[in-house]
Amino acid sequence: MKRSRLPALTTLLLLVFFYLPIAVLIVNSFNASRFGGAWEGFTLDWYARLFRERSVWLAVRNTALIAVGATLASVILGTLAAFALHRFDTRLQRAHYLLMYAPLVVPDLLMGISLLLFFVAAGFRLGLFTVFLAHTTFCISYVAMVVLARLQDFDESLLEAARDLGADAWTATRRVLLPLLAPGIAAGGLLAFTLSIDDFVITFFVSGPGSTTLPVRIYSMIKHSRHLPMINALSAILMIVTFGAAWASRRIGERNAA
């Protein structure tokens, strides 16, 4: 039976569509031209300038601080939530699930503005702390969903076997459940970390003076387009870092699966 070639062509087209902008960006980070329209010679100048930019380093520091904090907080809260959601089936848990699920679908713009309103109304001073609170809020849901999926695949009879062999509830949890769940928790944490690093919209709404994160910094660089080629260089570096991290997490995942 002859199959239509249209689906294959669409797939190919999409791959070109997906990679073209990224490829152009990386090439341009080495292009001496300011606008990247034509190749005007190889240069590392944009990278050199980037490294001299203090505000970028400050933003990197803020981003890392918040990402680490929000990841830790959301992993603890999200994992506990996943356990509760998995273990109990009550009306409270159904409300809990809805509360957990909603942040995944609400556009980040709405989450940003609502948190801004809340912080202003409650008299919080906008800064690193409010950014941390906001990031933890949206990360909890992702961690909870990833861990919950793992829990649903978990074979309950393993716990029964542990109890049967003389372990008490806590020992069974610690010696059997947690080790088996660890890759899921790690995956949730990694997801939270990358989401926190990447978030712009929510951060933009709830950050104050001195709490500029890297995406917020990039945004203002794009807005005031004097720095365009420097963003190319920054993008190239970030891409290599994210691809490296993603590749590493895949390797970890594969090793756990094996």
Partner: peptide, 20 residues
């Protein structure tokens, strides 16, 4: 186990949304 995340999301998600 429910309390921490439930309270957190109520305060930082449900309440702000209603605040809108």
């Amino acid at each position: 186990m429910t309390a921490p995340s439930f309270v957190w999301l109520t305060v930082f998600f449900a309440l702000p949304t209603l605040l809108i």
